[in-house]
Design a binder for these strands. Sequence first.
DNA 1: TGCAGATATTTTATGCTTGAACGATAATGG
DNA 2: CCATTATCGTTCAAGCATAAAATATCTGCA
Lengths: 157, 157
Amino acid sequence: MRDEPAGSKMELRLWLRLLSCSNLISAEIRRRLRADFDVTLPRFDVMAQLHREPNGLRLGDLSRRMMVTNGNITGLIDRLVEEGLVVREADPDDRRAITVRLTRAGATMFRMMATAHEAWIHELFGGLRPKAVERLLDDLQGLKLSAVAGLRSADAD
Amino acid sequence: MRDEPAGSKMELRLWLRLLSCSNLISAEIRRRLRADFDVTLPRFDVMAQLHREPNGLRLGDLSRRMMVTNGNITGLIDRLVEEGLVVREADPDDRRAITVRLTRAGATMFRMMATAHEAWIHELFGGLRPKAVERLLDDLQGLKLSAVAGLRSADAD
DNA sequence: TGCAGATATTTTATGCTTGAACGATAATGG
DNA sequence: CCATTATCGTTCAAGCATAAAATATCTGCA
């Protein structure tokens, strides 16, 4: 007897449910960001990272933090620069490197968006009891650990 | 004074954690689908839907089930047809409509992928105790209900 | 009948994302 | 010192995704 079959099916259901929650919510956040601020989620994410680093971030660090490829960041920053929300600055110590930073307009805009964003999340998550929020935080942490372990075991193959 | 702040911050943390779990896992699934079967996740999803409908599905039904736009489906099906995994069939009753269905090769290929997929999920989720899986299924269902309610309340605005 | 509106799909423009290839610069080791 | 190697950012081609406009067909009703 193995415990896989039944367990596997439940895990599959869990994965589908997780994905549908995540997609449902992120689609709604994207919709509202677009409707209220004419901004996309990836742009919002970039601005969120930059907002916590007043001295700016190198492009490589930004792409690592956002877990996306370098080539992706280039285009994202291009558009944010066009809109005057972000500036590129040469690094005096390393001529390969470029640092990006929010402009004053970018920082102001981000603060407005962040306030709205937090309220939206509360609208969407507010139906959960605090206990359930705690449990989910815990269990999702467990899932993350499990997944990271699963990643590594496949690496070793 | 409002009662939001504390709760809102936890909800925000939960949202970020949910998103990072979902992204982590789906990136890994994409990577493996590509490495082992040279297939993308959206293509796999289309094939999964078609596999449960031996008589095929109309494009509109397919886009509704996958919760993506019509225009998206067009290109996805184009590529699957090129690869010989799917066929388009005219509907004799309605000349606007097109039904798509897995070819025999498509069905065979999907069954192989589905087997591997289930094993991958078990690798990634297997670190969770069955109790935790149950709890997550429950709590995520609660989250979904909360989010759907939040969607509707915004509609009414 | 004939036509207004609904429905089914495709097309188009735009943006995000990836992986791979590339050019420029920096760091290292003989 | 110079050649090799590594790092930083960009470019490119391909694919996914959306919203909006276009096309074709169907349906209901006056």
